[in-house]
Design a protein around this nucleic acid. Structure first.
Lengths: 113, 113
DNA sequence: GCATTATTTAACGTAATTGTTAATTAGTCA
DNA sequence: TGACTAATTAACAATTACGTTAAATAATGC
């Protein structure tokens, strides 16, 4: 994707994941490649709508598309997920600190009893 | 947040993080509590605009607000970040598998030389 | 009370997102 | 060729997102 810096890539990845249908599509693709019709089947939604969700995922780099006759099999591309995990991990010390505080609190309460 | 299931919460968190200004605000809050004006200072954007970004973060549960005279200090709330990390971790085996494949490939190439 | 500071709300314009149905493109196969 | 399947694009409507400036609210302090 030309002209897309790492900030833009995070924007696109986060935005793509902010829809339950798209997260469900990714979950399905985690089990293996699937065509558009297969991916659309679980949803009470028109095929064009699903097709556009798939395009959003593709633009965000979360999936890749192949060609096989008239089928367009989709494959999960975990790169952006890895980026999001890395970004989120910057904050891990914060929530673990809070967890430690609670652990400590529980520990102190046990000492009292 | 009543009537917000865990899917909705993920939606809100991902959507909130899909904007560079909001991610920058979180990064600032990771260093400590700050007021709206302090948070707005780095951005070439009106104060009301920043105020609304802050509200988006608050609605997503990513920050909490206090009251201190006419100030409204904001504090980072890492809960949704933890949720996102947990969600993303479901896919960790996939990108690690790819990494292993590449490692294996590089290893094999080294064997050849 | 009155000026000052901090923040939010109101009103508005514009662009993006999400969905629909109908039409179109692309490829297969009898 | 012609019917069939897979998928996308076109055209449209409704909603949400994001920014602006101006006005309103809230708390402080002389």
């Amino acid at each position: 994707m030309p002209g897309m810096n790492s900030d833009d890539q995070l924007d696109a990845a986060f935005a793509a994941l902010a829809h339950p249908v798209r997260r469900a599509i990714l979950a399905r693709l985690a089990k293996g490649t699937a065509t558009v019709n297969t991916l659309a089947e679980p949803f009470e939604m028109s095929l064009p709508a699903v097709s556009r969700h798939i395009r959003v995922l593709e633009t965000a780099g979360l999936i890749k598309r192949d060609r096989n006759a008239q089928f367009r099999p989709c494959t999960l591309e975990p790169g952006p997920l890895k980026d999001i995990a890395a970004w989120t991990d910057m904050y891990r010390p914060i929530w673990e600190a809070r967890f430690d505080t609670m652990e400590q609190l529980l520990h102190d309460m046990k000492d009292d009893s």
